[in-house]
């Protein structure tokens, strides 16, 4: 078959909402885009363990400790599912991780902000996981089969993440003045970065005509962001807290909330590596990987020895 014919079959499948599977023919650019997107999504799950993991040791009750530990562990699982999905496209997990550590591949900038107080754990669950879930629900319908299936599994597990975050904030909002201040402060610090998670304005997107046909993503940045603002602006009332945006106002005409402009200079700076924790996050990941090398080698060596022994045993039995 000619490339043109293959491409037609591929595009027909996309049009008919038939998932693309690993061994199907796909344009190189599609493969490349997927590898970039899925691996960066995977890195985000793994790096995302760090800001929250920062509070496991200090969680204020045993129940909260268990919940947080389970939540952060879930994120490890998500990273694992997504690395597996990139492997179906012909990369190895190791190569993917090496690209993260060299700074070649990126991860979500949101995790380059520090978690300063316990309230941050609530705010991260509510706002960051909340923003992530909106994206992830959309990605469950993405055109690439393994990615879509990983997202379905992830979305199922995510359902408790946002709730546990909000639950932390509810407890704080009903607590002492110090706790309420802590709650408001965390919301103030996490609000704008979580809006940034949806990416630049649609008008600035650099997508080509070609790639829009691929249905890897299915809603625009601004659409999703608006959905998020509308949702959070209502939920924050339950906490008796406010969002740090003087322009936030219900608009009768559009039936949506209007909101202020994001600080894009900050956004690009954090992407470039100048966020408060960029260096520390990558260092932590590199350290874990490097210090784990001898462990991974030992297991490999032992498996090889055991296999050789088993084979010898078999030979003996035959002889």
């Amino acid at each position: 078959m000619s490339v043109q014919e293959l491409e037609k079959i591929f595009l027909d499948k996309i049009d008919q909402e038939i998932k693309i599977e690993p061994k199907d023919w796909m344009p190189d650019a599609y493969r490349k885009t997927l590898v970039r997107q899925i691996s960066q999504h995977a890195h985000s799950e793994i790096v995302g363990m760090l800001p929250e993991g920062n509070w496991i040791g200090r969680a204020p009750s045993l129940k909260r400790k268990a919940i947080l530990l389970a939540k952060v562990q879930d994120e490890a699982g998500h990273g694992l599912y997504l690395y597996s999905a990139t492997e179906t496209l012909g990369t190895t997990r190791e190569q993917t991780i090496v690209d993260l550590h060299s700074g070649k591949a990126k991860y979500s900038s949101i995790f380059n902000y520090p978690t300063l107080t316990w309230a941050d754990i609530g705010a991260v669950g509510w706002l960051v996981d909340g923003a992530a879930i909106l994206n992830q629900v959309m990605l469950c319908r993405t055109s690439y089969g393994p990615y879509a299936r990983a997202m379905v599994r992830i979305c199922k597990e995510e359902s408790f993440h946002q709730r546990q975050g909000f639950d932390i904030l509810v407890a704080l909002s009903k607590g002492t003045q110090e706790q309420r201040d802590m709650c408001q402060d965390a919301i103030n610090r996490w609000w704008w970065p979580s809006l940034m998670m949806f990416g630049p304005h649609d008008s600035e997107s650099t997508n080509s005509e070609q790639s829009t046909k691929w249905k890897i993503k299915r809603m625009s940045n601004d659409e999703l962001r608006q959905k998020f603002v509308d949702m959070i602006a209502e939920q924050v009332k339950v906490l008796n807290m406010t969002l740090p945006d003087p322009h936030l106002k219900w608009n009768e005409q559009t039936n949506h909330y209007d909101f202020g402009e994001i600080n894009w200079a900050e956004f690009w700076n954090v992407v470039k590596g100048n966020g408060p924790c960029n260096k520390q996050r990558l260092d932590a990941r590199r350290k874990a990987w490097d210090e784990g090398a001898w462990v991974r080698e030992a297991a490999t060596a032992y498996a090889a020895k055991r296999k050789a022994r088993a084979e010898k045993q078999e030979e003996k039995q035959i002889a």
């Binding site: 793994i46 760090l50 496991i56 530990l69 562990q73 490890a76 874990a288 784990g292 090398a293 991974r296």
Partner: peptide, 25 residues
């Protein structure tokens, strides 16, 4: 639980966290 997020390989990071969760329980 200090290992959570810092394990030598993802699968084992998850494994030791499970043990931690059992012990907290």
């Amino acid at each position: 639980s200090e290992w959570c997020g810092h394990g030598p390989v993802l699968e084992q990071d998850i494994a030791i966290t499970n043990i931690s969760l059992d012990l907290i329980g």
